[in-house]
């Protein structure tokens, strides 16, 4: 009898920890691409919880995976735009460090 893998909670706790790690990365890193990667971690945490909920909660069977698929697609769109912006700013400023983008705070 499985003690962990057959229950919902471990998956959600894993998702929560993953989300927190992503949030930490977002708050702590200076590099725009690192921050983007941190956001991807957060989105993956959300995905994991969506799938787990969809698998373990009878009323949601099927929905979880569908939801997660849509989130993956949204994340792809977001990443496309984000990386394009990063490339554009890199052309202008030659640095990917966000806290050096402070022209307006003079």
């Amino acid at each position: 009898m499985s003690q962990i893998a057959g229950h919902l909670e471990p998956y959600l706790v894993l998702a929560g920890i993953l989300f927190s790690i992503g949030a930490f990365g977002f708050l702590a890193r200076r590099n725009a691409i690192s921050m983007l990667m941190s956001i991807e971690l957060m989105l993956n945490a959300v995905n994991l919880s969506a799938v787990a909920l969809g698998v373990f909660i009878p009323a949601l069977v099927g929905q979880g995976i569908a939801f997660a698929l849509l989130i993956i697609a949204v994340a792809a769109a977001e990443a496309t735009v984000g990386l394009a912006i990063v490339i554009a700013i890199y052309r202008n400023r030659k640095t990917p460090l966000v806290d050096e983008y402070d022209t307006m705070r003079q």
Binding site: A5, G6, L53, I57
Partner: peptide
């Protein structure tokens, strides 16, 4: 959560 519990996976 009122979730199902599975024996294995």
């Amino acid at each position: 959560w009122k979730a199902t519990v599975f024996a294995g996976t």
